[in-house]
Design a protein around this nucleic acid. Structure first.
Length: 874
RNA sequence: GGGCGUUUAGCUCAGCUGGUUCAGAGCACCUGCCUUACAAGCAGGGGGUCGGCGGUUCAAAUCCGUCAACGCCCACCA
């Protein structure tokens, strides 16, 4: 059978994914085995696979596949998130492109469009994950707005309300004028913006001299909402304003001057205009001094009827216009360039407007407590650990969570308002009516109840994800939740540590009294070569699907993993995928070599092969132990790198070369069987990282039964390691390398057999191996190196290849002298240490002993070098 | 304005509790090879005063102080 010399991933990937699906190998159900659970961070239902998903899901798949191969009952639950605000924005856009405004539709009509959109786009990203090889249990695919999940959300709302943790109130919230909804603090991103500081003149009322107070503000367009001016009680320069009233420019309204030490005397002029409706701090002042509050904005950021002649204009238009008008009226003293922090909506990028409104909130401090402790005491471990600090800091300063959104796409808040005030919380209208009847003393019908128009924050469903995917809220004692919960690992981006991770931990403790997961692996951000975040708008993100077509899913997976230690950003470049693809090819060709051999029972195992097998067996054990250790520390890139080198260098370059029979000669059965065994072990070790090629070759290695898969066999275990053997073997490599260098330097073809002379201590156990790897005719022990020989050292032993005329005496002498110089310098430094009494006294005995050995070795090497030089100089 | 983190080869990173696995790995680079598994390869090689300064110690990439640059998180100075 001819096997192509290049690996073709496209052919095998589809085949094996189908095989895994057909044989239900991803499916998990509770049994006696130890469970291993991961819930996917649900991608947005309308999202398209990007490089961040690739990284994130590759890592999850590695963890799940490895757990499965450790005999655990691995369950990776996939699903999608309804992404309330993001999806609603997309649906609104699509409707707009068809000339339909959201406001023209009823709630029901709009939701119909949203569901259409969800049905059209919802499955795309999950299908794309299959191309990556993701071993999710697709039978469990969940959606944050499907029936089970919706019921869970409503029940939790009702429960937390009953516990008194959910309340309703008028607060200053972050208002997104584009999406027309409130946002939580976490959804606001602060950015530095270059703006101006405007100095406005507020004339003092009834002052004939025309004196005025100067107020510095970044937001002149809000003056219509001013209801006071505030100075510091101890501010001498503004003391004359105490007890006075000042006139708001353009508006002409008089407002009182109040005093509060909140004002910073040094900032601006020390005068602060107070606009309780449009600034969180001013709101606090307003409450304190019982100021009236004038809301001058419409929900979309245009000015309302309080905006005098600016009514109907956008807030930023007004800012420009009002500057001119103030100028014209002589009420603008000056402007200065100024940078300040402005809040932007995470989703729509609109500038946030602080707005007073009635919203639903969840009390957080009680929920936060056990969640804070769990991370602090490592019940839940963060990888890398540095995120613990961030987490603690946020948790200790946690604020109540604004959970209502003025949107339609999402879980509608299960609160029903009563005709004469008050409300009830209930899962269904029927339940609501029942509760209402119990609450009021007047007759009431279903039609009298009005359900809250708002929906819940998307994260109010995501935070239940590890529970709700196993139906742990609705049926808290079901077999699945009892078996799969707590989940094991969570793989996610640090950006959503507060949005999601922290809240899942809280929900986990509130509803199970147990951690949601044991380990959190924080991935980095995928960036381009220039260090920019990959984004659709920049167009700097490669299409993952195209990438996989070009380099193979295994190649891309490897590319992602090789350069992404936990928590570090990943500067992505296609070249790493190339490296991955090359490695696939390397594996492919090693297999081709092995499979090309004919076996012969009648040949006995050559000595070189016996040594090779023994050595590789030990090397394998050593590597397995190393990989185990790295996995336990979640150092996946390093684990992969160890395996990469193990396969490429130890297995291919050393082991296979050692056992390789002469061209077209058969191999002995014993060695062949051992080699197949090693290859099998290597495939198993690599399978979590590169599922497709390893399955393909594992299947081809031996005849396999129907439905069998590498996915479900165990990882190789680590045996005892003969350290001495491994050490000796490293010396052997040095010798082989030395001879190869001689060949290269002297331009000696490989076919020409050479003789190797040894001067000094040498372990001749591996002579047959050295002879085979270097094409030697013999290895002789000599008391002195021949003058016409090219030499090198391995440790303190000198090796040389007699070459007669081929050796350039001068060059050889030069080499030896350089080496001698180095050795003498080294000896000097060792002697200096040893002659330092304090070193000999204070250092640990083994350190001193080591220095003595270095001294002896150096001395013996120097003696040998001198002899060789003397012989050449003759 | 607070807090955290990073700085080691051209690039991406590893170096735990100070001393032979202390200056490493992969990629990139250079040289020679189409050697019958693999040129997506083989063999060999060069390259860093471990961000700067100061200190502790017999001994510092490693511990302490300080400065600098970069990054992240939090924060209401209008």
């Amino acid at each position: 059978m001819e096997i192509a010399s290049k690996y073709n991933p496209a052919e095998v990937e589809e085949k094996w994914y189908k095989y895994w699906m057909d044989n239900k190998l991803f499916h998990s159900k509770p049994d006696d085995r130890e469970p291993f659970t991961i819930v996917i961070p649900p991608p947005n239902v309308t999202g398209v696979l990007h490089m961040g998903h690739m990284l994130n899901n590759t890592i999850q798949d590695v963890l799940v596949r490895r757990a499965r191969m450790q005999g655990k009952n691995a369950c990776w639950v996939p699903g999608t998130d309804h992404a309330s605000i993001a999806t609603e924005a997309k649906v609104v856009d699509r409707l707009a492109s068809r000339g339909v405004k959201k406001s023209d539709l009823s709630r029901e009509e709009f939701l119909e469009h949203a569901w259409d959109w969800t049905r059209e786009h919802g499955g795309i990203i999950l299908e794309q994950l299959k191309k990556l090889g993701a071993s999710c249990d697709w039978d469990r695919t969940a959606f944050t707005m499907d029936e089970t999940r919706s019921e869970s959300v409503l029940k939790v709302f009702r429960d937390l309300h009953e516990k008194g943790l959910i309340y309703r109130g008028v607060r200053m919230v972050n208002w997104d004028p584009k999406a027309l909804t409130a946002l939580s603090d976490e959804e606001v991103i602060h950015k530095e913006v270059n703006g101006k500081l405007y100095y406005l003149k507020y004339k003092v009322e009834g002052d004939p001299d025309g004196t005025y107070a100067l107020v510095a503000t970044t937001r002149p367009e809000t003056i219509m909402g001013d209801t006071a001016m505030c100075i510091h009680p101890d501010d001498p320069k503004n003391a004359h304003l105490k007890g006075k009233k000042v006139i708001v420019p353009l508006v002409g309204r008089a407002i009182p001057v109040i005093e509060d030490d909140y004002v910073d005397i040094e900032f601006g002029t020390g005068c602060l205009k107070v606009t309780p409706a449009h600034d969180a701090n001013d709101y606090v002042l307003g409450e304190k001094y019982n100021l009236s509050s004038i809301d001058i904005f419409n929900d979309d950021g245009t000015l309302n009827e309080h905006g005098i002649h600016y009514a109907g204009m956008d807030r930023f238009e007004v800012r420009k216009q009002i500057e001119k008008d103030l100028e014209a009226a002589g009420l603008l003293e000056k402007t200065e360039p100024y940078t300040n922090n402005v809040g932007f909506s995470e989703r729509t990028d609109a500038i946030i407007e602080p707005k007073l409104s009635m919203q639903w909130f969840l009390k957080m401090d009680g929920l936060a407590q056990p969640a804070t402790e769990a991370v602090e005491n490592n019940t839940i471990r963060f990888h890398p650990e540095k995120y613990k600090n961030m987490y603690r800091h946020w948790m200790e300063n946690i604020k109540d969570w604004c959970i209502s959104r003025q949107l339609w796409w999402g879980h509608r808040i299960p609160a029903y308002f009563l005709p004469k005030g008050g409300y009830v919380v209930a899962l269904t209208p029927e339940e609501a009516l029942e509760k209402a009847k119990a609450k009021v003393d007047y007759p009431i019908t279903m039609d009298d109840l009005k359900q809250d128009e708002d929906v819940l924050d998307t994260w109010f469903s995501s935070w239940l994800w590890p529970l709700s995917v196993f139906d742990g809220i609705n049926r808290p004692d079901n077999e699945e939740i009892n078996y799969y919960y707590p989940t094991n690992d969570l793989v996610t981006a640090p950006e959503i540590i507060f949005f999601w991770v922290a809240r899942m931990i809280m929900a986990g403790y509130e509803y199970r009294g147990e951690p949601a997961f044991r380990n959190v692996y924080f991935t980095g951000i995928v960036r381009d070569k220039l260090g920019r975040k990959m984004s659709k708008s920049l167009g700097n993100s490669p299409d993952p699907i195209e990438l996989m077509e070009k380099y193979g899913a295994d190649g891309v997976r490897m590319g992602m993993l090789l350069t992404s230690p936990a928590g570090n950003d990943l500067p992505f470049d296609k070249s790493v995928c190339e490296q991955g693809r090359n490695f696939n090819n390397k594996i492919w060709n090693a297999f081709r070599l092995i499979k090309g051999w004919k076996t012969d029972d009648s040949i006995s195992q050559p000595e070189t092969a016996a040594i090779a097998v023994e050595w590789f067996q030990n090397k394998l054990s050593e590597t397995v132990a190393e990989v185990d250790d790295l996995f336990s520390k979640y150092r996946l890139s390093e684990a992969l790198m160890v395996l990469y080198k193990f396969f490429w260098d130890e297995f291919s370059a050393w082991y296979l070369e050692m056992i390789k029979p002469d061209y077209q000669q058969p191999i002995d059965t014993q060695t062949y069987e051992a080699t197949l065994g090693f290859f099998d072990a290597l495939m198993r070790l690599l399978h979590p990282f590169m599922p497709f090629i390893t399955e393909e070759l594992w299947q081809a290695l031996y005849p396999r039964g129907k439905g069998e898969s590498i996915m479900t066999v165990l990882q190789p275990g680590a045996d005892k390691v003969d350290k001495k053997l491994l050490g000796d073997f490293e010396t052997l490599k040095e010798v082989v390398s030395g001879v190869r260098t001689v060949r290269l330097e002297k331009n000696i073809p490989n076919k020409e057999k050479l003789e190797l002379h040894v001067t000094g201590g040498h372990n001749d156990r591996f002579n047959s191996v050295i002879a085979k790897m270097c094409q030697l005719s013999s290895i002789l022990s000599v008391s002195e190196k021949q003058p016409g020989a090219a030499g090198f050292f391995a440790g303190t032993t000198e090796y040389s290849v007699p070459l007669e005329d081929k050796v350039d005496k001068e060059a050889e002498l030069e080499k030896l002298r350089t080496e001698l110089g180095y050795a003498e310098g080294f000896l000097q430094s060792v002697l200096k240490k040893l002659s330092n009494e304090r070193f000999v006294q204070n250092a640990k005995p083994e350190i001193v002993e080591n220095e003595r050995k270095k001294q002896a070795d150096a001395e013996s090497k120097i003696a040998q070098l001198k002899e060789s030089i003397a012989a050449l100089e003759l």
